[in-house]
Amino acid sequence: MNNENWKEARKRRKNLLIVEGNHEKNELFGLIFKCFPEISIDMEDVWIYGTNIYMLYEDIVKEYDVDWDEQDVDLPYVISKKKNRDNIQYKNDFTNIILVFDYEHHDPNFDEDKILKMQKYFTDSADVGRLYINYPMIESYQHLEQIPDNEYENRQISVTLQPGVQYKNKVKDTVVAKSVDLVRKMREILTERFSVMDDIACSKCVDELLSISNTNNLIDNIESKLKNIIEQKHINTAKHQFKDLISKLGYINERHSYWIYMREMINQIVIHNICKANKIQNGIYPISSNEYKKCFEQLDLDKILQIQNEASRDEQNGYIWVLNTCVFVIADYNFSLVLADK
């Protein structure tokens, strides 16, 4: 510990993403960072730490004692100490610390006080870290039936809807889920169907295919991107299959790349969730577009958590408002990113 070589420059600008370790979160944030290059987070600089919010809570208590919330908590330190004592890291080297957890009302460790204490403390991603809780879980960002979706205002789920896989099934066919899934699907086809083994080349190819933004010579264009990694005998099948995939979502007819299309979709998700959060907090759903920013700044995630706690307490009749706050990462970073494409 602390045996640093003085000739080695301190590596700064790192990013820490503390999530529950599930693949989808990686996918969502990978997509967000890809669609919003302004945030300038390279996935390679993202350090993902999978844990559950209550385990993290206990780790913090272990290091700082129960009055941790009156101290300056260094999450990279807490985590790196536990993970790898030889490579201790400090928050001073991290420009972003983002904590994303599911509400997990049904978790045996669920504790209203602990989760509220966390929500109250972790409020700044550029400093100690910012906690985003998703209700009921991360997949709620996919829970729009269409865009815009006026029904989102009243969307709730019963506390009896568990385990999580039930909720996942509920949202897996939405337009958002299908759109987000395109990246995974393409990778799957390349690796499983056409036996592309080189992981980096595969990512690069998917990236290029998704960057296509017009229909001119689409087939040839696709072929040129595939020819280096797929065997010649499969090219013909492959190019048509990818053409179908790319055309299906329709973005290409609008002369957009997938990334631009997803950026707009994510922005819509952010706006829907700002309105929804305002509904939970203040009882008002519709907001005029020039009020988005002001409204967003007045959101109080502690209060929303408390309201959710109240609403879900009854084990039979309780309910949870569907709300995704982790997409607020974008609005927190710079609100103009959300409005820019309007």
């Binding site: 700064r12 600008r13 928050k91 001073n92 991290f94 420009t95 700044d124 550029a126 400093d127």
Partner: peptide, 14 residues
Amino acid sequence: GHNLEKMYISGEFE
């Protein structure tokens, strides 16, 4: 509310 000093040190403006 941003902690500018911490941001400077962590390389936000690198």
